[in-house]
Simulated assay, not measured.
Amino acid sequence: MEYQYPIDYHWTTDETITVIHFFEAIEKAYEKGIEREELMAAYRRFKEIVPSIAEEKKLCGEFEEMSGYSSYRTIKKAKEAGSGDKIMMK
Score class of each variant (00 low, 15 high):
A42R: 10
G82V: 13
T12I: 06
L59M: 14
T13R: 12
I7H: 14
F63D: 03
I75E: 01
K90F: 00
C60T: 15
G68P: 05
S52T: 01
I75L: 11
F46R: 04
A25W: 00
M40C: 06
K28F: 05
Y72C: 09
A42C: 11
E64R: 12
Y3V: 09
P6H: 08
F23Q: 08
I75N: 02
A81V: 06
T13Y: 07
K57P: 02
W11G: 00
G33Q: 06
K28N: 06
I53L: 13
M89K: 02
D14C: 08
S70V: 10
S67T: 02
Q4C: 05
K58V: 10
K57D: 13
R36M: 09
K58S: 05
E38W: 00
E15N: 07
R45S: 14
W11L: 07
V19L: 15
I7T: 12
E64A: 11
S71P: 01
E38F: 04
E27I: 00
R36K: 14
G84F: 00
T74K: 09
V19F: 12
Y3F: 15
I17G: 00
K86Y: 04
S70P: 07
G68T: 02
P6G: 07
Y43Q: 15
E31W: 04
A54W: 07
R73K: 15
L59R: 01
M40L: 15
I17K: 10
K32Q: 13
F22T: 00
E35V: 12
E65A: 13
A41E: 11
I20C: 09
A54L: 10
I49A: 03
E24Q: 15
V19G: 10
A42T: 04
Y9Q: 11
K76F: 02
H10R: 15
S52M: 04
P51E: 06
M89G: 02
A41I: 05
P6K: 03
E31P: 04
F22E: 03
M88F: 04
S83R: 15
G33W: 01
S83C: 04
Y30E: 08
G68N: 06
S71E: 05
K58C: 04
V50N: 00
E48K: 14
T12E: 11
A54N: 13
A78Q: 03
K58N: 07
L39P: 01
I26P: 09
S83W: 02
E27W: 00
G33D: 06
F63P: 01
P51F: 04
F23E: 05
K32I: 07
E27T: 01
T12K: 10
M88S: 07
Y72V: 12
Y43T: 00
L59V: 03
I26K: 12
K32N: 12
T18L: 06
I75P: 01
K79I: 11
V19A: 14
I53R: 14
E35N: 13
A25G: 09
E37G: 11
K57R: 14
K58D: 10
A29N: 02
I26E: 10
M66H: 03
L39Y: 01
C60S: 09
L39M: 08
K57F: 13
E56I: 08
F22W: 09
Y3S: 04
H10I: 09
R45Q: 14
R44S: 08
E27S: 09
E35L: 14
K77V: 08
E55D: 11
F46A: 02
H10N: 14
A81L: 05
F22L: 05
K86D: 07
